[in-house]
Simulated assay, not measured.
Amino acid sequence: MVVLVRPSADLHAAWLEAHFEWGSGQHEDGFGLLGTDDVRSPHGFRAFVDRLITEESSPGNDGCAYRWIAEDAEVLGGIALRHENARNVDVLGHVGYGIRPSARGRGLAEAALTGMLSLARERGMKRVLLACFANNIPSVRTIEKCGGSLDRTVVTDDGDIERYGIAL
């Protein structure tokens, strides 16, 4: 059974398997990973997890709640819910997620997004924004299955980005 779990240093080995599967230089949406994070060493990974947990409880609306998508102690992806008025929410959206390549096509993103929408409701949010590249058809379908409607398309040098809203 697939579940959303809070980041935990106990999942270091499982998290690294997912991380290495993405490959070097690839962006892993939903994990909150920074280029300065040392996730390979146990000490560095614990610091990474502590940062994520601290960010969730940061005062005001500037934090982010991270959850890992897991099944049978295997980390399959990550999803993040940025607080209502977090920095860059107008660009990045309130929710970002990523599924490791070997786990894609199983409906995990839809299940995870549904779970994070419940968390957003619990936190009193009335609407969430999501953004994805227009050519990311699986993500577009996931967002639409969860009630997303296209607000606008923004043309960038990296490709067209579609912005969706989901009313809660």
Rank of each mutant, 00 (worst) to 15 (best):
residue 103 A to F: 11
residue 159 G to C: 10
residue 64 C to A: 07
residue 98 G to P: 00
residue 133 F to Q: 11
residue 78 G to V: 01
residue 90 D to H: 15
residue 94 H to P: 03
residue 148 G to H: 02
residue 86 A to I: 09
residue 128 V to H: 09
residue 64 C to L: 01
residue 111 A to F: 11
residue 147 G to C: 12
residue 140 V to I: 07
residue 62 D to P: 03
residue 120 A to Y: 14
residue 64 C to F: 01
residue 154 V to M: 08
residue 149 S to D: 08
residue 54 T to I: 04
residue 142 T to F: 00
residue 67 R to L: 02
residue 106 R to W: 02
residue 136 N to L: 11
residue 146 C to M: 07
residue 113 L to R: 00
residue 95 V to T: 04
residue 76 L to Y: 05
residue 85 N to I: 03
residue 56 E to N: 01
residue 127 R to F: 00
residue 122 E to C: 06
residue 55 E to K: 04
residue 159 G to Y: 13
residue 62 D to T: 13
residue 143 I to Y: 02
residue 92 L to W: 10
residue 87 R to E: 15
residue 110 E to P: 00
residue 126 K to G: 04
residue 101 P to M: 06
residue 99 I to T: 01
residue 160 D to G: 07
residue 139 S to L: 03
residue 128 V to A: 09
residue 119 L to S: 10
residue 54 T to H: 13
residue 108 L to N: 03
residue 142 T to Q: 01
residue 89 V to R: 12
residue 92 L to Q: 11
residue 126 K to D: 07
residue 142 T to S: 07
residue 61 N to S: 13
residue 82 R to W: 06
residue 99 I to N: 02
residue 121 R to E: 15
residue 151 D to F: 07
residue 148 G to K: 03
residue 152 R to L: 04
residue 66 Y to H: 12
residue 73 A to C: 10
residue 160 D to Q: 07
residue 107 G to V: 05
residue 103 A to Y: 11
residue 112 A to F: 00
residue 84 E to F: 02
residue 129 L to C: 03
residue 85 N to F: 14
residue 104 R to H: 03
residue 76 L to T: 08
residue 99 I to S: 01
residue 97 Y to P: 00
residue 160 D to F: 14
residue 70 A to L: 08
residue 86 A to M: 05
residue 92 L to V: 10
residue 89 V to E: 11
residue 151 D to N: 03
residue 83 H to S: 05
residue 94 H to M: 04
residue 149 S to Y: 15
residue 74 E to W: 12
residue 138 P to M: 07
residue 107 G to I: 06
residue 144 E to V: 15
residue 137 I to R: 09
residue 127 R to Q: 11
residue 89 V to L: 09
residue 72 D to Y: 13
residue 139 S to R: 04
residue 72 D to C: 08
residue 150 L to P: 06
residue 89 V to A: 12
residue 104 R to P: 07
residue 138 P to S: 10
residue 141 R to E: 11
residue 107 G to P: 05
residue 90 D to K: 11
residue 80 A to G: 01
residue 164 Y to V: 03
residue 165 G to E: 01
residue 116 M to G: 02
residue 67 R to Q: 06
residue 148 G to R: 01
residue 60 G to D: 08
residue 85 N to V: 06
residue 125 M to K: 08
residue 53 I to L: 15
residue 155 V to H: 12
residue 78 G to S: 05
residue 147 G to T: 09
residue 83 H to K: 04
residue 141 R to Y: 10
residue 157 D to G: 11
residue 160 D to C: 12
residue 65 A to M: 00
residue 142 T to E: 01
residue 156 T to H: 14
residue 110 E to A: 14
residue 85 N to T: 10
residue 55 E to S: 04
residue 134 A to Y: 04
residue 124 G to V: 12
residue 121 R to A: 15
residue 158 D to G: 05
residue 118 S to L: 09
residue 108 L to M: 03
residue 62 D to A: 13
residue 126 K to S: 07
residue 91 V to C: 07
residue 155 V to E: 13
residue 83 H to I: 00
residue 157 D to P: 08
residue 134 A to G: 05
residue 165 G to V: 04
residue 81 L to R: 03
residue 78 G to T: 02
residue 92 L to M: 13
residue 69 I to L: 06
residue 119 L to V: 15
residue 81 L to G: 04
residue 59 P to F: 14
residue 146 C to F: 08
residue 81 L to D: 02
residue 80 A to R: 01
residue 132 C to F: 10
residue 133 F to L: 06
residue 121 R to V: 14
residue 163 R to W: 09
residue 138 P to R: 07
residue 154 V to E: 14
residue 105 G to H: 09
residue 75 V to C: 12
residue 129 L to M: 10
residue 69 I to E: 02
